[in-house]
Amino acid sequence: MSYEPPRPVRGLLLTPEDKEAPARVHRLRRLGLGERPEPALDAFADHLAQLTGAPYAMVNFIGEQRQFFAGLRVPVFPPVVREDGTSPEVGRVLPRGHGFCPHVVVRRKALVLEDVSDYPRFAGNPVVDEYGIRSYLGAPLLDSSGMALGTVSVSDVAPRAWGKAGLETIKALAADLAVRLERSAEDGLPP
């Protein structure tokens, strides 16, 4: 009898339950976030991509059914080409069950996936097949009440050794951005 290692289960609901989602949506509305692209957050995502060398960077606000990338940086030339010669289009909205940011929000902790194929729970995620995502680094945007509003994250189509420096960088940038977002909302200014 030969041993076969377990394979990722495709289609299994692996997104964690998010009991704070209704309160988060209410808080995001009060802060004026998560409904439209924000040029300042696009600039933040661009800076984050340059800093980490990742092709994708996001400022992501998580709702009850969807995720919205208010800040988004995607490469001009997509790094993934399908067999039919097309490339996947990365938009500003994803279902809540796609990607890894919902895990970061529910856990309220940073998540480092140097190679998603090493983690059966994450290897079957739709972004792996649809966009070719192989590595991820994300940290929660925690407001002053401790609520996770969303995430700051980067991802790549190749495995990446983000290391401790990458983890510390993304956590510090997320903490700084969370303060700035609250301050801007209190002052009635865009982020």
Rank of each mutant, 00 (worst) to 15 (best):
E4H: 10
P6D: 10
R7L: 02
P8A: 12
R10V: 15
L12W: 10
L13N: 06
L13Y: 10
L14Q: 14
T15P: 03
A23M: 11
G34Y: 07
P37R: 09
P39H: 11
A40G: 11
L41T: 02
D42H: 13
A45R: 02
D46I: 01
A54S: 15
A54M: 08
A57I: 12
A57T: 04
M58V: 10
V59L: 04
P75I: 01
P75R: 03
P78W: 00
P78A: 06
V80I: 14
V80D: 04
V81D: 07
G85N: 14
T86R: 15
P88D: 08
L94V: 04
G99Q: 00
F100D: 00
P102M: 10
V106W: 05
K109T: 12
L113D: 00
E114N: 10
P120R: 02
P120V: 03
P120N: 03
R121Y: 07
F122I: 01
F122C: 01
P126D: 11
V128K: 00
E130C: 03
E130Y: 01
E130N: 10
S135E: 07
Y136V: 03
L142R: 08
S144E: 15
G146D: 11
L149N: 01
V152W: 00
V152K: 02
V154A: 02
S155K: 04
V157E: 05
P159R: 08
P159A: 04
W162P: 07
K164G: 11
K164H: 14
A165E: 09
L167T: 07
E168F: 13
K171Y: 07
K171F: 13
A178Q: 03
R180W: 06
S184V: 07
S184L: 06
G188C: 15
L189C: 14
P190Y: 11
P191Y: 03
